[in-house]
Each structure stands twice: as structure tokens, then as C-alpha cells.
Design a protein around this nucleic acid. Structure first.
Ligand SMILES: [Zn+2]
Ligand SMILES: [Zn+2]
Ligand SMILES: [Zn+2]
Ligand SMILES: [Zn+2]
Lengths: 127, 127
DNA sequence: TTACATAATGTTATTTTATAACAATAAACT
DNA sequence: AGTTTATTGTTATAAAATAACATTATGTAA
């Protein structure tokens, strides 16, 4: 069980508390009172947290969310649905899809290490 | 059938000629001899070309590729395999995947408009 | 313990990616 | 022709990410 450093814990805490994806500079401005002063400190923490599977990056938004799927401790297969109206991002528990997709990648002759899938549309509330 | 403006055509040409994804500023430096001088001109053309489905953005790379799938004239469902060794990007055109994924989105209660899927790993040549 | 190696942090500056804002042309429509 | 709409040109700036290097903390081994 990997133990977090001070900066990693601070960054993770703020992401965990947020109900929406946070941008790196939003995180920075929210942790400056805790002593984190510059972008590299945030980005380093983010990188490690991603490696550990504690958070994921939403590529289409350049934003970061806590892993909502406790089993996802290696972040090798991620899937999200993103509401274009309310901006809600939900992590899709990947067991259903991941089997299908890894199977596909294999057949396609690719030695796949990970994938990222992002759905865009309207969530239940907004449609 | 939509007709391209001058800048759109210039940008599309250079993307079509490239065997690899191009970054916006790489495109810019390659089209300056043709009279396109500033980032907004490139980004505007890119936006329109994406809308038309002529090109796609590889989100994880902030780079742009020509659509390799002529049927993909609305860019609502895209899938790519990305080699982490040689950086090769291949557009996956597979009706089974798109059927499976749109079906999944529907069941999940989402009114989905599009998705983007990116596989990472080693291509046939590199593995 | 001390000496050495490794990892994490702090800090400044810079690079890379993308957009805001507004003036000038060109194309389409009435 | 006159009016609207889309596209372009241009300057400046915002937003996202990293390079480079000095410093401090942590772990390991003599
Ligand atoms: Zn997860
Ligand atoms: Zn919504
Ligand atoms: Zn396509
Ligand atoms: Zn390869």
C-alpha cells in the first residue's frame, strides 16, 4: 500500500472534495494557503496520483477527477460520460466495457496497455 | 457537399499529406509561406474541419489527423490506436465497436452525441 | 553515526497550446 | 446598391504544461 507524500495528499484531498473535474491551476489557487506555490508542485503530484490510479485526467477538458471506482488502482482502462450541459463527469465502472475493448485491441493486433474512452452527451438530469 | 474556404483547404492539405498527427503550431509554421500568419487562423480552420469530420483531434496528444475513414463525415464517434513507441496513430473504423458503445451509452441512461476512444500500446511493428 | 544515494520539494523562468477582442474583407441575400 | 453574415487578418493575452536547477528530506549501507 503506497503512502502519499505531503503535496500528493493535499492535492488529492481537494480533488476528492470536489464534485466536478478540477483544472491544475484551479487546484493550485486552492492549495496556496497550504504552502504549494507553483505549478510544478501541482503537476508532479497529479502525475503520481494518476500513476497510482487515485485520479484520472479528463483529456478533453484538461481536468482531473478522483477515481470513483475503487477497483481501478491501476489506471489502465478508463471510461467517462461527460454531460455537455451541466458538465457532470461520471466514471463508468469499466468491467463491462473493458472486457469487450481489450478483446478488440487484441484482435486488432495491438499489444494494448491502456485505453481512455469519453462519451459526450446529456446526462439523465439534463435530457 | 460542403466547400472549403481557402484557409481550411490549406490546413487540410498539410494534414492530409502528413503521416503523423500534427500539432497546431507545427501546422502554423508549415503554412506561413502560404500566407497564414497567426494561431487563430489555424485554430479556426481546425475547428471547422473537425466539425465537418475531415480531421480529428487526438486529445491525449493535442494533435490533429486526417480522417482515415471516409464514412466518418460527422465526427461523432472516433476511435484510435496510438503506439507508445513509434507514435503511430491509426483510426479504427469498426462498426461493431460503435454499435456496442452507442448501445452501452443508451442503456446507461445517457443521451449520447459522440464519443472518443483512444487505445495506447504497441503497434504490430513495434511489439 | 556518518556517508552516500535517491526521492521529493521549492523556485524561477520559459515553452506550448489556445482564445479574446476588434478591425478589415469577402460572400450571400433582398 | 445596400444590408447582413461569414471569413479573415492582426495584436495581445490567457491557460496549460514543462525545463532547469538549487534545496531539503528520506532511505540505505558501511
Ligand atoms: Zn478509476
Ligand atoms: Zn447534465
Ligand atoms: Zn474519422
Ligand atoms: Zn509502433
Amino acid at each position: 500500500m503506497e503512502t502519499l507524500t505531503r503535496n500528493q495528499q493535499i492535492v488529492l484531498d481537494i480533488i476528492n472534495k470536489s464534485s466536478e473535474p478540477l483544472k491544475a491551476y484551479t487546484i493550485l489557487s486552492n492549495v496556496q494557503k497550504k504552502g504549494i506555490k507553483a505549478p510544478p508542485q501541482v503537476y508532479r503530484a497529479l502525475d503520481k496520483l494518476i500513476e497510482m490510479g487515485k485520479i484520472h485526467k479528463i483529456e478533453s477538458k484538461n481536468a482531473f477527477v478522483a477515481c470513483q471506482n475503487s477497483s481501478c488502482n491501476v489506471s489502465k482502462a478508463t471510461a467517462f460520460s461527460i454531460c455537455e450541459s451541466c458538465e457532470e463527469v461520471t466514471e463508468i465502472s469499466n468491467s463491462k466495457i473493458s472486457k469487450y475493448l481489450s478483446n478488440f485491441a487484441e484482435k486488432a493486433g495491438m499489444e494494448y496497455k491502456k485505453y481512455n474512452l469519453e462519451f459526450f452527451g446529456l446526462c439523465k438530469k439534463c435530457k
